[in-house]
């Protein structure tokens, strides 16, 4: 890790605006949104250095950041591939073929759920209901929902993401 852990001036302005939404002394309330910003800024995951930095910005103890970061499923505490493919596997998606979709990705990318492809491009993850049950099966990649998927659409998505070669981000 050579990159110095400091927000850009632009990002810092966003963070300060987030903090202002809460009453005086309640800046800790901004922790969840600020962690999202930090994750997007620092390669898609939260290292302990990044978490310590967030703690210093919000003037709270590092442990207060760790305990939150480890509670919520959208924070990655380990590096992930450029594109995190989050496939929903809960009831309604399962009824409409989520199991097949996961198996298809495993085969196509030659990885198991939880693993990252050799080229560092894709991490496959299964997640619980994303509020998209009427357009199942589906997956989330960054802020985008990809719905009503079948193998053809899934393949097209992989090709598109490969061609774009960009890190997916929620924000």
């Amino acid at each position: 890790m050579s990159k110095e852990i400091v927000f850009s001036a632009e990002t810092l302005a966003v963070v300060n605006k987030l903090i202002k939404r809460y009453p005086e002394g309640r800046q800790k309330s901004a922790l969840l949104p600020v962690l999202h910003v930090a994750q997007a800024e620092f390669d898609g995951w939260l290292s302990s250095d990044v978490m310590d930095y967030v703690a210093s910005i919000l003037e709270i103890k590092p442990i207060e950041v760790y305990e939150v970061a480890s509670f919520y499923s959208m924070y990655n505490l380990k590096p992930v591939g450029k594109c995190l493919l989050e496939v929903c596997q809960t009831g309604p998606c399962m009824l409409n073929g989520a199991d097949d979709l996961v198996a298809h990705f495993e085969k196509k990318l030659n990885i198991k759920v939880g693993e990252t492809s050799e080229d560092g491009m894709f991490t496959l993850k299964t997640v619980e209901c994303l509020g998209s049950c009427g357009t199942a099966p589906m997956l989330q990649c960054g802020a985008d929902y990809h719905e009503n998927l079948d193998e053809t659409k899934a393949d097209a998505l992989i090709e598109k993401l490969r061609a774009e070669n960009k890190r997916s981000r929620y924000c």
């Binding site: 939404r21 919520y72 499923s73 959208m74 997640v127 924000c171």
Partner: peptide, 12 residues
């Protein structure tokens, strides 16, 4: 009145 939106992070 001020209205703000707070984002969660994945937790039912």
């Amino acid at each position: 009145l001020d209205v703000h939106v707070q984002i969660g992070a994945g937790a039912y």
